[in-house]
Amino acid sequence: MMITLNINGETHAVDVDPATPLLWVIREQIGLVGTKYGCGIAQCGACTVHLNGAAIRSCVTPVQAADGQQITTIEGIRRNDGTLHPVQQAWIDEQIPQCGYCQSGQIMSATALLMENPSPSGEDIDRAMSGNVCRCGTYGRIRKGIERAAIVMAHEAVVEDTGNG
């Protein structure tokens, strides 16, 4: 079956079994391997991508459900000018990744959280991030990274506002 995927602003037509999890289509057909497989049953968050701006587990999302929708992966969250997203920069500044395998998913969950809630409380962070396992135990640093990115993004928003006003 032909399915149209809009991934990171590009349109792809793929001929796949509509039941195939989006994860494997992104990795194998589209060739974007930053999105990871960890469990296949929505338990670890390694496969997190955005579907119309919301964080979803691509390992349990049939590709059919994404037909014609806007998908964003880790490869697509840089700013238009090519610079890192503030969350990515915060991940470097806080020296978060260890093995790094979970971090695409962590960053996708964190960016989705901040889009929806620009100044999350500790509990908001817990709620949004508890679906993402990090076997290297980088949770404490991830929390700091999100807080740092939130401050940077809030500052950017203010600059933009005054610039426009």
């Binding site: 930053g34 999105t35 880790i74 490869e75 890192l84 990515q88 991940w91 990744p97 790094g100």
Partner: peptide, 8 residues
């Protein structure tokens, strides 16, 4: 190794 681990 960290830069390569924040952009996939």
């Amino acid at each position: 190794d960290i830069p390569a681990k924040v952009d996939g």
